[in-house]
Amino acid sequence: MGVSVLQPGLATTVQDVGRPGYYNVGIPPSGSLDQYSSLAANLLVGNAEDAAVLECTYMGPELRFGSPATVAVTGADLPPLLGGEPRPAWESFAVGAGEVLSFDYLRSGARAYVAVSGGFDVPAVLGSRSTYALGSLGGLEGRALVAGDELPIGDAGGAAPGRSVPEALRSTHPRHREIRVMMGLYDHRLTDGGRRTFAEATWRLTTLADRTGMRYRGATLEFRERVAPFGAGSDPSNIVDAPYPIGSIQVPGGVEPIVLHRDAVSGGGYVMVATVISADMDDVAQSAPNNTTRFVEVDLRPGRRARRRRAARLEALREALA
């Protein structure tokens, strides 16, 4: 017996660790945007690390369980309710057959993860159950959930409910963040003033923020004058279409930095000036509209150190929930 979707929430999709290896034909890695929280949810309920979870953006779904299960909710502070009664986040709890899981209003962050013992057992496509909605690929029929959907659940090996992520290993979601970036790609197209503005401005996340990219506003970046190269297009922010790294920050027209996330468009014709380091992509995913961000420049070495620290934190999570 599976899970019935009574209300879908705003943009709820099935996600997992992603689908690497197909970016060369325009299929992005997809997967949970906040991989740390997604892993925590799976470990809490005793799932394999690559089991599929639900990613719930801004608003939770309403789900009726057809059979008993162990459930955990992590990520954004989107308080779970079972039969209308509060349940703890970052902690696994039991759900009985016929019970309804719903959510209170979002308090902080942007994306909550719901893991169920056994995992959401939709068919794997190209090695992953992640939903890539632009390509109608993976997940449940390649799209976000709608009311009336039935989600199959895999066989639970599972863990007993009542497991908890230690306080120090839970993510918190401040309204202002410092996101570390490495400058590069086409940053030589910025004037010195444009570079300074990029680093010093306080950028506010707009409502145009989804799994493909997060658009910010806050300042105007100045580009150097140039004769447009053949094939680039006339705007100073145009380039001959190039590959877009995951996490790269493009600035169409100089006014709207867009950070591409795990459903990225794989390439295009807008100048990119920096890339978010891999360790900070989970934080980018938890920014909500109107939250503010400063982009802080780091070099490759501190970027790799941050990556190792994140790996150590993932390891600590695995040990705490072993």
């Binding site: 060369n24 970036v181 490495m182 590069g184 790609l185 190269p229 053949f230 094939g231 680039a232 380039i239 001959v240 190039a242 590959p243 790294p245 995951i246 996490g247 790269s248 990119m272 890339t275 978010v276 380091i277 891999s278 360790a279 490759l300 970027g303 790799r304 941050a306 990556r307």
Partner: peptide, 28 residues
């Protein structure tokens, strides 16, 4: 140029042309 800590980006030309395209295809 590095694109963050996990991408490397290489550009052969600023202008579109078949030779640069071919180099990119041959190298990859």
């Amino acid at each position: 140029s590095f694109g963050g800590d996990d991408h490397i980006f290489v550009e052969f030309d600023e202008e579109m042309n078949l030779a640069a395209n071919f180099r990119a295809m041959a190298v990859t």
